[in-house]
């Protein structure tokens, strides 16, 4: 038997090489949008303090820019997920379901701890981002292992 794929199958291969290329390109696009979103978030967060002072118009523009870039990031993420193969999509779907559940449950518990003054500090939303990000990464690693 020949180790190379026959002509017919080579057609598939060429098409799917483009699938792999598209996948890489989508991942890169998502990385660029995420980086841009982080930069605009930093701009909106720190610039009023370190750059333009109390100009509300500039601050509002920075927040609007962050929001628009955030929408771009969401679309890039959607395109990235859409181009994954079915097992990769399943892994992402399960990891996102776990992350959503953990985020909702721990978020409300954390908020209750704050409301009932059991914790001596205010509940910060940034802690939730950390928990959700950590949960998502761990979930992907664990679920991927299951299919290896």
């Amino acid at each position: 038997m020949s180790k190379t794929l026959p002509k017919d199958e080579n057609k598939h291969t060429q098409k799917n090489n483009s699938w792999e290329c598209k996948n890489k390109s989508n991942t890169l696009t998502l990385a660029r949008w995420t980086a841009a979103w982080l930069i605009t978030l930093a701009l909106a967060t720190f610039s009023p303090q370190f750059s333009w002072g109390e100009s509300k118009i500039l601050t509002l523009l920075a927040i609007l820019l962050n929001l628009l870039v955030g929408i771009g990031m969401i679309i890039a993420n959607k395109n990235h997920l859409k181009n994954l193969d079915e097992l990769q999509q399943k892994i992402m779907f399960e990891a996102m379901a776990i992350t959503l559940g953990v985020g909702l449950v721990t978020g409300l518990s954390y908020s209750l701890l704050d409301i009932t003054n059991i914790i001596p500090f205010d509940a910060e939303i940034s802690n939730m981002y950390f928990i959700m990000g950590f949960t998502y990464i761990i979930s992907i690693a664990v679920i991927k292992r299951r299919y290896q």
Binding site: S2, L5, E86, Q88
Partner: peptide, 18 residues
């Protein structure tokens, strides 16, 4: 057919892990 997993994956349009 003496194909590798990677070749089959390419032909099917999925990842080798799949």
């Amino acid at each position: 057919r003496d194909w590798t997993q990677a070749q089959l994956a390419q032909a099917l349009g999925v990842s080798r892990q799949t």
